[in-house]
Structures are given as structure tokens and as C-alpha cells.
Simulated scan of single mutants.
Amino acid sequence: MGKPLSKKVVAAVLKRDGGLCVIQLDGCLRDANVADHRRNRGSGGARSLDGKSNLIAACGLCNGAKEDTKGELRDLLIARGVIIESGRTHEHEAQKARETPVWYPDGRVWRLDDHGGKTEVK
């Protein structure tokens, strides 16, 4: 397994997302306590996938359950930008994360950046 995210990065992601889980699967705890990779690093994956544009706030339940989703639910999470599908390389996947906006549970759509900010997409 790769090196965990720093507490500073996790705190920045949680703050950016208002401390609420962005994923919100059934049974969601709502209060976020982890930074979830939209494109999973897998077993050790590239550090380029640790950019804040690839991270969203999540509760422990949704963080654990997201990667096991299948079918229509997985398709919905991809459409919402919560899951980024694999790319040609890790850098390509990181670029996809920078380009793919996220539909938040409140209906607003945001493009995330690697500085910990977000810009609303109208």
C-alpha cells in the first residue's frame, strides 16, 4: 500500500467540501472524515493521483463502499465525477481528474484544482 495522504492534505479537502461526504451512498454518515481518491491509487499507485483535484471528502462508510459499486450505481457515480475511470497512464488519470467536474449532493457542479480550491461550473 502507498504512503497515506498527509493530515494537511486531508484537512484541506475536508475544509473545501464543507466537512460533508460528497459520495452519499445509502447509509451515508454525512460527516466526512477521509479524503477519497476519485481515481483510486490501488495498491501503491502513482503519487500523481494524490492531487487535490482527485480527492473528495467522504465518510468512512462511503469511502469503503464506493469501489465495490457496480452497474447503474457505478455509472451514476462516474457521471457525477465521483469515480474517474482508468486512463492510459497515471498522469492521464490525474489529468482526467483535473478536467472532470464533480456533481455535489446539493446539485452544484464544481471543477476541483490541485491547490485545494474549486470553481463552480455553470
Rank of each mutant, 00 (worst) to 15 (best):
G2C: 10
K3F: 08
K3G: 12
P4E: 05
S6D: 03
S6M: 03
K7G: 15
K8G: 09
K8T: 14
V9N: 03
V9S: 06
V10W: 04
V10Y: 08
A12Y: 00
V13S: 03
R16V: 03
G18S: 14
G19Q: 06
C21G: 07
V22H: 06
V22W: 05
I23V: 14
I23G: 13
L25I: 01
L25A: 10
D26A: 08
G27R: 13
G27A: 11
C28W: 04
A32V: 11
A35D: 08
A35H: 05
H37K: 06
R38D: 02
R38A: 05
R39C: 11
R41W: 07
R41S: 02
G42W: 00
G42K: 03
G42D: 00
G42Q: 04
R47C: 01
S48T: 13
S48W: 00
D50I: 07
G51D: 12
G51T: 07
K52E: 10
K52T: 12
S53R: 08
S53V: 07
S53F: 07
L55C: 10
L55F: 06
I56Y: 07
A58W: 08
A58S: 11
C59V: 05
G60N: 03
C62H: 02
N63A: 15
N63L: 09
G64I: 13
G64Q: 14
G64P: 05
E67C: 12
D68F: 15
T69F: 04
T69P: 07
G71L: 02
E72G: 09
R74V: 09
R74H: 02
I78T: 15
I78D: 06
I78E: 11
A79C: 15
A79Q: 15
R80W: 04
R80G: 05
V82Y: 01
I83D: 01
I84E: 06
E85N: 13
E85P: 08
E85R: 11
G87D: 00
G87F: 00
R88L: 12
T89P: 04
H90D: 11
E91P: 08
H92A: 11
K96N: 04
A97L: 11
E99A: 12
T100A: 03
P101I: 09
V102Q: 07
P105M: 09
G107K: 09
R108E: 15
V109H: 01
D113M: 01
D114P: 06
H115F: 14
H115V: 09
H115E: 09
K118M: 13
T119Y: 09
T119E: 08
T119C: 13
E120A: 10
V121H: 13
K122F: 08
K122H: 15
